[in-house]
Structure formats: structure tokens, C-alpha cells
């Protein structure tokens, strides 16, 4: 029990952000028309590629002087994260392009 309390007070900022973000996410998304379900999901998917930041931090401080597991997995993490970000945003853009072109 005490551990939980300590954990809470040590991480209270992060916990605050998590809780408020949940409300924010719900608020921002509700009332979205079904026309946009796919692009919205795809755009959100690209945002979840924010894990790339973690990949950069990991690989950034990894020891690159010798070939290690950390090195290898770090590269994979950055590569996967980038795929998620770049692919995600481009696909979303392409989808939205289709919605737009016939609104002339």
C-alpha cells in the first residue's frame, strides 16, 4: 500500500496527464461522423507512432561502438516507429484527398 502511495507521489505529473488525456481523447472524438472513421483511425494510428521519440532516445544513448542487442533492437524500434509515423500520415492524407476532390 505504502509503495503505491510513494509511486503515485513520484509520478503524479504523469498520472495527471494520463487521466486528463483520457477525458480529452473522449471529448475530441465523440460525435465524429462515420464518414471519417477510417481517416480518423488512421490519423490516430499515425499519432501513436509517437513511440518513435522513445526509439530515438533509446538508440541515441545506446553504445554504438560495438554490435550489441541494444544497438540492433534500437535500430528496429526506430525503423518501425518511422514506418508507423510516415506511412500513417501519408495514408491518411491520401484517404482525405479522395474525400476532398469531389467537393468541387
Amino acid at each position: 500500500m505504502e509503495q503505491i502511495l510513494i509511486y503515485f507521489s513520484e509520478n503524479k505529473e504523469a498520472i495527471f496527464i494520463i487521466v486528463l488525456s483520457i477525458f480529452l481523447g473522449i471529448e475530441v472524438i465523440s460525435h465524429v461522423p462515420s464518414v471519417l472513421h477510417t481517416p480518423l483511425m488512421s490519423g490516430a494510428n499515425a499519432i501513436s507512432g509517437v513511440i518513435i521519440i522513445g526509439g530515438i532516445i533509446l538508440l541515441g544513448h545506446a553504445d554504438l561502438t560495438e554490435w550489441s542487442l541494444e544497438f540492433f533492437l534500437g535500430i528496429l524500434a526506430v525503423l518501425f516507429g518511422t514506418l508507423n509515423v510516415a506511412g500513417g500520415f501519408v495514408v491518411t492524407d491520401r484517404m482525405l484527398e479522395m474525400f476532398r476532390k469531389k467537393r468541387k
Binding site: N11, E13, A14, I17, I18, S21, I22, F23, L24, G25, I26, V28, I29, S30, V32, H37, L40, M41, A44, N45, I47, S48, G49, V50, I51, I53, G54, I57
Partner: peptide, 27 residues
């Protein structure tokens, strides 16, 4: 992604991740 953001105490990661998590759950 938000969990990883928690490890790094990285607010942008936490917010971005949870935002997507909540939005995905609503959908």
C-alpha cells in the same frame, strides 16, 4: 506508446499515446 512515455517521463509521448488510446476505445 503512452506507457513508454511514462518510462521516459515524456509528456508528448504520454499525451499522444493516451489520446489515441482513448479515441480508439471510443471508436
Amino acid at each position: 506508446a503512452a506507457m513508454a512515455g511514462f518510462i521516459y517521463k515524456n509528456q508528448a509521448m504520454i499525451l499522444g499515446g493516451i489520446l489515441v488510446g482513448a479515441a480508439g476505445t471510443i471508436l
